[in-house]
Design a protein around this nucleic acid. Structure first.
Lengths: 249, 249
DNA sequence: AGTCTTAGGTCATATAGATGACATTTGACC
DNA sequence: GGTCAAATGTCATCTATATGACCTAAGACT
């Protein structure tokens, strides 16, 4: 395998060549990013890939194992290995952390209130690591269940990646927005950092959720990361009745 | 390897014999539970263990890999593999999810207010899967930083496991209680489920945190699991200023 | 006593191949 | 056309072995 060519030549700093399986993993990620197989698409067989990369099957397997653990690939015994599409159940439960007080999963439909393209706020620039002049696509939406508005949400997305994102405001969507990020903009969310804080409802939030302005609400702020490690989503969600639930292991 | 003996003999239900590496993993977990090596202790070398279990090194390695991923073991290149002690940094950051608004980690000392042994409440029985007559050890404590009380906490632990738990109320502890669970009671926490909700401070919470009774606070309810999968801790934490932060991947 | 080298133990990475289980396709047969 | 069995391709598990990197301790040498 010749992935690490050129590194050894830098004098003084030997720069330990990374293990083959890591290089293979990164090659795979690169191909996924480039859309060689597309979400839901099947990879070539392990045999073929190993030959193509010039490594043994065991080594290739270790690389794909990592990506399966990471939730990027899904293996199906006897069928093959495919790139995870965000609609898959696994991927959905991974990022939807709202639950009712009795432990029932929150299973909402979402209605888009606004879609704007504007300059990023200071907070958004910080959290998304954007330039001063950067623009974002802003989404404002309400997520409800059985007709009751339970979550009010403001999302900011780097405009350079998401300009072509179009959501029909007349339709209530039951799918995660991440499905649309992936389908329309080729952006796959692989990781997120959530911060849950106490907050007071601002005018719009209060109105959307049927609360008094200034009422205590839960605010979840999320920064989500794409395949290449770039920060691609800044999201704030407010709710008064739901709970945030997560498993640590 | 003869782990699965006796299973095949049950008629009608063939019960697919589990893969060797899973059986090896469970054997390891069993030994860890039984305290064969104790927290911080070193396992025999991979060679020895593989011989002892009658499997190849690759198979044994897959088993230990799983346990390392799960945070139960730690490998040190050139030294050996040891059972994780809860004081280790990794284990600490895993379960401490409170942060300041500016992102700084909450690094508290804890002061014990009360230790009681009493009948479990209905909620505790539900969350800990206890019998109707079960008793629990109850801990009440305040966690502060720089002299400021920031988290008020009530913990319930099954009395059959934790009766010998003794914490000195005169000393402020900077270590996680999980260290003491492990040292004094042989209970290792490996997994937890956290639920973050909006709440109103009760009288004691308000007093502890310097708030008005009924003030809005964040409540984190945790159910934590031991090595054998048993629920061993029910904890409720209240805070007004701190945030709950977690990474999803 | 202190420093350096060396030897041996450990985990980390990589290979090659064998066997089994699962899913789909092909084709014989009715 | 429909049904069943065989063939084929895929991932899953397991073995055996080799080499390298990292850590420690024992000696050799100053």
């Amino acid at each position: 395998m010749t992935f690490d060519q050129g590194h050894e030549s830098s004098p003084g700093r030997p720069l330990a060549p990374r293990p083959l399986y890591q290089q293979a993993r990164e090659l795979l990620v690169r191909k996924i990013i480039d859309g060689v197989w597309g979400p839901g698409g099947y990879l070539p067989s392990e045999q073929q890939l190993a030959r193509e990369f010039g490594v043994s099957i065991g080594t290739l397997r270790k690389a794909t194992d990592d990506l399966v653990d990471q939730g990027l690939l899904e293996r199906q015994h006897g069928r093959g290995t495919q790139v995870v599409a965000h609609s898959s159940a696994r991927s959905r439960f991974r990022f939807l952390r709202f639950f009712h007080a009795d432990g029932r999963l929150f299973d909402p439909v979402a209605r888009l209130l606004r879609r704007t393209v504007r300059a990023a706020t200071a907070a958004e620039r910080t959290h998304l690591a954007l330039e001063k002049s950067a623009r974002v696509v802003g989404l404002t939406r309400i997520r409800s269940e059985a007709g009751e508005a339970l979550v009010f949400e403001r999302i900011a997305l780097p405009a350079d990646l998401f300009l072509q994102l179009e959501l029909d405001p007349r339709v209530e969507l039951s799918e995660e927005v991440y499905v649309f990020y992936q389908r329309q903009c080729g952006v796959t969310i692989v990781r997120a950092e959530d911060q849950v804080a106490l907050d007071a409802a601002d005018a719009e939030t209060a109105q959307a959720l049927g609360l008094a302005e200034g009422a205590a609400v839960l605010r979840v702020r999320r920064v989500a990361y794409g395949l290449d490690g770039r920060r691609v989503e800044h999201r704030e969600s407010w709710t008064a009745k739901l709970r945030y639930q997560v498993e640590l292991d």
